[in-house]
Design a protein around this nucleic acid. Structure first.
Lengths: 187, 187
DNA sequence: AAGTTCGTACAGAAAAAACTGTACAGAGTT
DNA sequence: AACTCTGTACAGTTTTTTCTGTACGAACTT
């Protein structure tokens, strides 16, 4: 029985094992700004033997092709999948990005950079509004509030300067000098 | 007219200026795993002259006290607000955490640490399932798939080891030796 | 040019998340 | 002990997000 090797049962076990990891990815992928079901999509492509088409993903997950299309784009923008070209194949083929460090950096950098820039702009504009108010007002109480706000915004600006430096650390790749990539261990 | 100083108009201008920054926070605070309206709550407390009670927040934002309660808890858990004690005041008082570096670190550390741990556990379990399958199966094709999967999981495990080191960099505070905090500049 | 095949835009349906009002437990006051 | 005040659990409603089916443009085939 056992040693006979029931192929279907074995394939089922394989699926079970893969699913254990996939469902965990689905739960945690929100850290990359990606929804759970798109995380499952990622997991499916991750374990696929070969690059997948949208139709295969749709078939495999039991979801619409439309969802695969939008889901893959989200993954693509996060640098988590890449497109593959195969001679004679007309359909788009996708596989997961093998360099997870790159995926992480992409997500971290683009999202934080974007937010930081906008916040810095907002701080500048707010400060300029406050400066004007501080000069035109004749009320001492208002003036005091303005100065207090300006002070806090300056602190915030300093913080964003720091965040910006941290982002650069990742963007430049210097982070890997400080925290080296880990060697894969086969166990 | 102008130099007369219309108090109401000035207060209005102050609100406008503050709102400019608050709405930007609301838009970007999702990076801390916090929803826009809770971000507005943060902004409101941030600009408040003094620590606020749930009732004051509710009044100021025109939202239910229940929402303030849950919102403040989310901010508290992200280390973005702290509770303040004032003699004779029975209501809970909150102010924003002044050390934004700390808030950032808290969010980054707890969220990534948590996700990493769970993923590492999932990898271990998946690997153990695969190992068993690899030993019991008699099908060469299955064995091949198993080995391929194991290889990929080992790569993933290496990546999570790296993430873990990065988290430690922030947790230990060593990050501040590499990327020093910025001095506040008054302008 | 007519006929396929493929990916995606778009509108509506389904699912998930956020918000509110009511109700209640715990602490403080009288 | 009776009464008041405060924060939050919970159920139901509203809002937002996700997902699907239809439809269509672009590229390829014949």
């Amino acid at each position: 029985m056992e040693s006979n090797g029931d192929l279907d049962a074995d394939l089922n076990k394989l699926e079970k094992a893969r699913h254990r990891f996939i469902s965990e990815i689905a739960k945690n992928v929100h850290l990359y700004g990606i929804s759970p079901s798109v995380g499952r999509l990622y997991g499916t492509v991750f374990f696929s033997d070969k690059p997948m088409t949208l139709d295969e993903m749709s078939e495999s997950l039991g979801m619409s092709k439309t969802s695969m299309s939008t889901g893959i784009r989200a993954l693509y923008e996060a640098n988590m999948v890449e497109q593959v070209w195969e001679k004679g194949v007309r359909k788009d083929l996708y596989k997961t990005e093998e360099d997870w460090y790159k995926s992480f950096s992409t997500v971290f950098i683009t999202r934080w950079r974007n937010a930081t820039e906008k916040n810095v702009t907002a701080i500048k504009e707010t400060k300029s509004m406050l400066h004007e108010l501080g000069e035109t007002t004749s009320c001492a109480e208002i003036k005091e509030k303005v100065n207090r706000d300006l002070d806090r915004l300056n602190e915030a600006a300093a913080y964003y300067g720091w965040i910006n430096d941290v982002i650069s650390l990742f963007e430049s790749g210097k982070i890997f000098e400080i925290v080296p990539k880990k060697q894969k261990v086969n166990t």
